[in-house]
Design a binder for these strands. Structure first.
Lengths: 356, 356
DNA sequence: CTAGTCCATGTTTACGTCAACATCCGTCAC
DNA sequence: GTGACGGATGTTGACGTAAACATGGACTAG
């Protein structure tokens, strides 16, 4: 499979040369339908788009001809004509985190409901090279709008810009005020989690944080710290994982050696690993140590013990992203605010008052 | 957001009428670049596509003009002209199973490497209505080929057909011999799992199966049964979950009441729930009961205990799907075989010889 | 020195759709 | 009866690209 891809943004300097094979079977066009129905192709267009000014009898004829011939509008021609692809691009680094996946799913569903398709643009790990390729193509991508499922500053790091005139919305990240943001209310989630533990009587709460580069992780951590400070609690050392259950386990072994009685993990997967580490050290959850997670992954209800966690409304985030990006597409609105989607705590069996 | 979408396959009977707003800012076209560079637009086309027969000096001029003007090829026009969108559609029911997600990710990555974009076509739960809408649009979707991440018979149930002439490949499913299939070697995985338990000395192996409608689940179950039969073991009653960890827990509580010493769960998530159920019944894994999963999800290494499981090579499945579908697009090949991608067992800490 | 080649580049045209404008015909008011 | 009006339908052209064909100049062989 040879490839002809622009390597250089703005300029085109492709390598291999293989003309695409001849276009596949010519499909049924409006002209064909028009001939069959004995009308002009413009009338077919009108019927196809539901415009008025077509008498019922004619309409029927056209509809019949369409059915007989199996006519399908050609979206390339449509897009060329209208300048719209009816497609939204979603740029993301990976589908390995629950959040991204569920948000993507919600985006796809909402977009479909609006008659828009979703093009997924995966960007490999932030290696300069990999990113570059993916983004370069973006300019010529058949996309009317873009939803970024990643931190905007990573985009900068890659030294790339989105094409002008394409509405962009950022989900679950920061955006340097350049684009509007739809985000889970990370701060409120953290606060709720920590407060829940404090209310149970824990003297303070240890935080198993996400990676430093993650904006969401950063905000969860900040809110944890602030909540403790506001409550006049001592702020313990931060432990840091990389979102994976395994990192939760590794870091969890350190936490298990401390006298912590309450841990707030920045996501459920790390909480899973943490709970294993605690169990292996003979510290019972929730009797000896309480644990709260973040995300409310479907599995959390089957963790041992079922995890108390902060439920994120990914569906709502996705829905709002689509809504906002389409609104900007139509109106060209320009307020770069941040919209927060509320969260709620789901109390299960991993939290209890501290051992007396 | 009003919508003008064909409701009826083949015929068009839209409802609302709102012309799209005028096309956004006119973008830089080949003609602009040509003017700027003082050449014909055909020469620009040649440079843009890396065709030979352009002298270096001219090429440079064109490249410069492209850069200055910020030229981006218009993919709609390109698609109209060439009949190719350089896009692959992926149809799937949900992104809630690990398998789908990871396969999708692999597909997206491989496709990007080949210069193809991925359009995700979500189909809501197999409700006749929902499916219909999604598929109807498929016909006019800007897609050169389709990868189905679902059972073909569900497609039939929805009483819909894919447009002719579009290559289709089915991943991880059956296809009634209508389309080629790329699949994980489910049977070999099951056999390996069961054999591993038998080799440890277990007299027989209980199966925590997936839902009856799932083809993958069916095949895992068949292979489990066959392996037991071949080994002359008694075949115990089948327990059935719905892939979720919670269902694994619920069904697991029943299993925990039996005298089973070895369980093969049809996926890791159910194994997670099962292990919780066993723990709650005071049956230790692996000392009292051995458990093997299927999938090797990233979290499995952090389960308590770390799960012995069958590793699926989703990346390879995705890669092959893309390869095959593009090959069919170019060549129109027509062999509807099934390609099996090998699996391997990952031995961790959830299996041991039976208690004596 | 001329005919033949080959190569770089230019010109034309078609892809399918749809907006804009043109046409045709019936109806109605005067 | 004639002109004006309006509704149904047709005709034209443009969107941006790239294949097919055309041109023209340089070089080569005889």
């Amino acid at each position: 499979m040879t490839e002809r891809i622009t390597e250089d943004p703005g300029a085109a300097a492709p390598a291999a040369v293989r003309p695409l094979p001849p276009a596949p079977v010519r499909r049924v066009s409006m002209a064909d339908v028009a001939r069959r129905a004995g009308v002009s192709s413009q009338t077919v267009s009108r019927v196809s788009n539901g415009y008025p000014g077509v008498v019922e009898a004619t309409r029927r004829q056209v509809l019949d001809a369409m059915a007989e011939l199996g006519y399908r509008p050609n979206s390339a021609a449509r897009a060329l004509r209208s300048g719209r692809f009816r497609t939204i691009g979603v740029i993301l680094f990976s589908l390995s985190t629950t959040g991204n996946v569920r948000t993507l799913e919600a985006i796809a569903t909402s977009a479909a409901a609006q008659g828009y398709a979703i093009t997924v643009i995966p960007v490999e790990a932030p290696t300069q090279g990999g990113v570059r390729g993916a983004f370069t193509r973006l300019g010529e991508l058949a996309v009317d709008a873009v939803i970024l499922l990643m931190e905007v500053h990573l985009l900068d790091a890659a030294d790339l810009t989105l094409p002008d005139g394409v509405p962009v919305v950022v989900a679950d990240s920061d955006a340097d005020d350049r684009y509007p943001v739809i985000d889970t209310d990370q701060a409120d989630g953290s606060r709720t989690a920590v407060q829940h533990l404090l209310d149970l009587g824990h003297r303070t709460v240890v935080h198993l944080a996400g990676p430093e580069q993650s904006f969401a992780g950063q905000r969860r951590e900040d809110a944890w710290r602030r909540t403790l400070t506001d409550a006049g609690c001592e702020v313990p050392e931060v432990y840091r994982g990389d979102w994976s259950a395994w990192s939760g386990y590794e870091v969890g072994r350190e936490i298990a050696r401390t006298d912590a009685t309450a841990v707030f993990a920045a996501n459920d997967q790390m909480a899973l690993g943490l709970m294993r580490a605690l169990a292996e050290s003979g510290r019972a959850v929730p009797d000896d140590v309480s644990v709260v997670g973040f995300d409310d992954v479907p599995d959390a209800v089957a963790y041992r013990p079922p995890l108390t966690t902060i439920h994120q409304d990914f569906a709502e985030v996705g829905r709002r992203c689509v809504e906002l990006v389409l609104q900007r597409l139509d109106a060209g609105a320009a307020d770069h605010g941040t919209t927060l989607v509320p969260v709620r705590i789901v109390e299960r069996a991993s939290t209890a008052p501290p051992p007396s």
